[in-house]
Design a protein around this nucleic acid. Sequence first.
DNA 1: CGTATAGCCATCCCGATTTA
DNA 2: TAAATCGGGATGGCTATACG
Length: 317
Amino acid sequence: QKLESFMDRNGKYAGTVGTTQCLPFENTHSLDPFLALLNSRLLTWIFKILYGSLTLSGGYHSIGAPQIESIPITDEIFTDSTENKYSSTGIELGSKARKLEELKSELTKININFMDYLGTYREGSSLKEISTPAENISESILIQTTEEKEGFRINMATFEMDPESLLLKISARYKPRNKSEFNSLDQWGYIETDFIPVMRFYVGDEMKELIKSFVPAAINRAGGFADFRKNATKTISLLDRLKQLTLPKLGDVESGLEKYLEQKEKGKKLEEKIQETDHQIDAIVFVLYDLSEDEVVTILDSLETPEDEKSDILEKF
DNA sequence: CGTATAGCCATCCCGATTTA
DNA sequence: TAAATCGGGATGGCTATACG
C-alpha cells in the first residue's frame, strides 16, 4: 500500500536512480546520498517486496539497472527550487554514508584473532586445576558421552562475571535419536543445547581475561590444540574434555593478551559507531518517506530486526 | 548465473593406549 | 593377551557465501 501511495501522489515514483537519463546530476555530484538511501532498511525492505528476496548470494538474484530504476527515490533529498541540488537532508544523508564507509574501512584493519597475538608459550594450568564445578553439573548432559548422544560435541562458550568469580557456560550439539521431537535440526541433523554452567573460576582479573579470550579460541581451533578436542567419545564426556583444556602460562602471553584486548575494545567501539550511524540513516530515511511509527515497526519486524536495534531506530525516528 | 572457497561433517587409516 | 577405543592426519562431500 505504501509503495502504491508513492506512485499515486506523483503519478509515478517520485524519482528513480540508476541510469544517466534518470539522474539529474553531473558526474561531479556526489552519489553519497543515494548510497545512504539504497543501504537503508526502508529501501532494503522495498527491494524485498518488489523482488521477493533479501539475498543476492547464491547466484539467483542480482541488482542491475532495471531493478535500481524501479526503486522509488523520494524527491525530499533535493531542494524544492531545483532538482540539481541536494537538500540539507540529502547532504546530511550523504555525509553519514561517507562516515559509515570510513568507519567500516577502519574496522577491516583491526585483527581480532586472538591466536595471532599468542606467539609461542609454555603450557600452564588445565581448567580442571583452577576451577570449581558449577552447581548441578553432575546432573547436566555435559557428563554424557557418545553412548547417550550421537555426535556429541561442544559448540560454543560464553561467560558470566560477578565480583569474585567467572562462570563458564557451554552449549553443545548432538544428533537426537528421536528426530521428530525436534523441529529445529540443522542441515546435518544436529540439535543445539542452551548454555549450561560448567565451571567457576576464582582467579585474578588478568587470569579471568585470559580464560575469556583463550577458551573460546581453543574451542574454535580444537583438534588437539591446548590438549583439547570438542567431540565426546564413548568414554570421554564433554566435561572431561573441558577439564583437560590447558591454558598458557600467564606470564608468557601477558603482553599479547593486552594488545589483543586493546584491539578488541577498539573494534567494539567502531562497531558501535557503525551501528549508531546506520540507525541514524535509517531513521532519517523513514522520516523522509513520511512513514508512521506503526509502519516503521511493521517494516523492522518484516526484516527481523533484533529488539535492541529496533528500539534504537525507533528512538531516533 | 557460473565458479571459487570456507567451514562443517563423515569416513578411513593406522599406530598407541586402555579395557575386559 | 585380545579386543576395544582413542588420537590425529588425510580425504572428500556438501552447503552457504563471495565474487565477477
